[in-house]
Design a protein around this nucleic acid. Structure first.
Lengths: 355, 355
DNA sequence: TTGGTTTAGTGTATCGTTCTACTAACACGA
DNA sequence: TCGTGTTAGTAGAACGATACACTAAACCAA
């Protein structure tokens, strides 16, 4: 069925050169080549519609111009934008993106990483990943380059610390920023809604939340912390559901919170529904603040106040770091880049109504 | 840097067999092999942590266990779920997914298809694609297998008709279903909001809308059709924005529509914002219906009435069809599968308020 | 014993590139 | 004329897995 593809041999034959010369041209080694030779080859390639066989190339060089991308769930539009940003930056440098859905499951992530490795992928970006990266360290040992997003490497994790780059928003500061915003508006009973705190970004946002409370002299009340557990799925599909359930639960308490900090925008949007379920209005009865600033946040009803992550620029940095390592132009010690967040005030937060 | 990977030779050496035998095992040809030999090899593979080099395999066989996936935009969560569904089904059959962002641009789609081809990808799924598929027919001629989603192939397009499989919801019926729902509620002035009608699915939904009107004896008023043009972006990021602008425009008219059919849920959610911008409430002042039933539809405020696409089962079919072709177990004439849609009534539609 | 058949393998060319080591042809200075 | 450089290439062995075409050994029937 599949008719043979055009090979370098055919190009060489037509151009009247050796395959080596064609290969040299393909790899930019044109310094030892007369311009007319170069042109003859180019004409031949054009004429035959030559396209390099990546498999053969990969077999020789040991790596493919492909970046692996493992994310926890594509159901949250945040990850959609994430993928889009990565894909765009990768494309700019001639790389393709192989996608994997890790589902926040170390086992599954590892299987992916191994499969990617066998496809010649030597650079992988992990989205929000589980707390431990031990499962991929074996591959890092073999030469896999990894950039993690949203995951602060523990400093004591020396074994991985120097070998895995990372980029992340300052989640502690972000969580704190969100909480302070509500505190500044006058809220004192502030709930926190999240799914299982299994990733560092979530833990950190939660830390930020507590820090901000303490700084403001407000006692942290464990009853106001709702950690959606027991949701069997892989993460974000139910983000909105968890947010909804959490809001319902928290807002049905005797002394209900007047403000809600949520782990991300999907939870926040879910919390809207939860508030509405128990007959409360946003923001008059309860203020809600999200995290991420997904595109939908602006058009939600009411528009969602949230903490923005500068996703596009972050992922550009991540991709470039990774490709630089792949291409050997970055041999420095791996590092963790932290980027500041930004508070985007919209209409879902307001001062609490007097008692 | 990258330490050599384990090869089939090393496995063979350890197991005391030839590489051929190991290869046979890898490819499931175990009928000519003693169980003990099989086991010896398996133990050896386990011990060495053998992982097949896909590049070498691909070079020999001419194809990779990878499916290409070209979608218009990952910013719309619908496509997120789409990717997720494909990825899941592909994984079940041992395939990986290479992602490309086509942006509804034929040129770009073609570049992707060619790049995928050079990576040994012999099966590609196109999400909602431009009207003409001529640009990829060349590759189909060479042996590329294609399944298009959401694109009805014109019957007169004989050249591609028999070589490209397709799966799609019945968009005409879906558009009609949405419109009828509003008509049944008593609406007579019903607007239609869409982005550029550059894909068949959009054209068809629009057809369905007009059909339903005509059937109900309502004249189609071109003024009530809002086609967001001039949005430079690649598609859905602005879906919500277009929906918002469209709703604002339509609802500011003298005799404003009481119901709005939108091309998809993102537009509908945007239309919520547009309605709110001009001081109208959903559904009391204006009913809005979407298309897709993205997960967010259920938790929108109010929950969105919409037309559901059974995405997961559709994509499972698409993936299986494609892989069957790749593996040669389906040599039948290509066909177009059409799946029925389903109306999901929630809270964004209600009878129009009396004048 | 011979011939045939089955079982359980094996030898090796091949896929399309890359890359190291090699060289033919020419120029130039002495 | 030789020796030395330089220029502009070329030859050919890999890379790791596959698959076609073989075959050694064992078994069995006549």
């Amino acid at each position: 069925m599949a008719s043979r593809s055009v090979t370098i041999q055919e190009v060489a034959a037509l151009a009247g050169t050796s395959t080596s010369t064609v290969s040299n041209l393909l790899n930019g080694r044109i310094e030892r080549m007369r311009p007319e030779t170069k042109q003859r080859i180019e004409v031949a390639m054009e004429q035959l519609g030559y396209q390099a066989n990546q498999a053969a190339r990969q077999l020789k060089t040991g790596q493919a111009p492909i970046l692996g991308l493992v994310i926890p769930s594509v159901a949250n539009p945040f990850w959609g934008s994430f993928v889009q940003s990565v894909e765009e930056s990768a494309l700019e440098r001639g790389y393709q993106v192989l996608l994997g859905n890790g589902g926040r499951d170390p086992k599954r992530e590892q299987r992916y990483a191994e499969s990617l490795w066998s496809h010649g992928v030597r650079g992988v970006i992990f989205g929000s990943s589980p707390l431990s990266l031990d499962h991929i360290l074996r591959l890092v040992d073999r030469g896999l380059n990894v950039v993690v997003f949203d995951r602060r490497l523990r400093d004591d994790d020396a074994s991985s610390g120097s070998r895995i780059d990372g980029i992340s928003v300052d989640n502690v500061a972000g969580g704190s920023l969100a909480t302070k915003h509500l505190l500044d508006l006058g809220h004192r009973r502030i709930g926190f809604i999240s799914g299982p705190l299994r990733t560092s970004s979530r833990l950190e946002r939660f830390d930020g939340y507590r820090n901000a409370l303490i700084e403001a002299g407000v006692r942290f009340d464990p009853d106001l912390f709702w950690e959606g557990a027991g949701y069997s799925g892989t993460g974000d599909v139910e983000g909105a559901e968890i947010g909804r359930d959490g809001a319902k639960a928290l807002l049905s308490m005797d002394r209900r919170p007047t403000g809600l900090v949520t782990i991300n925008d999907m939870y926040a949007l879910g919390a809207y529904a939860g508030a509405s379920d128990v007959g409360l209005r946003v923001p008059q009865d309860v203020s809600i603040i999200g995290f991420d600033d997904i595109s939908m946040a602006a058009i939600a009803n009411p528009p969602l106040t949230t903490i923005r992550q500068p996703l596009q620029s972050m992922m550009k940095t991540a991709v470039n770091t990774l490709i630089d390592r792949l291409e050997g132009s970055n041999a420095e010690r791996a590092q963790m880049v932290t980027v500041p967040t930004e508070l985007v005030v919209r209409k879902s937060t307001s001062p609490p109504e007097g008692p």
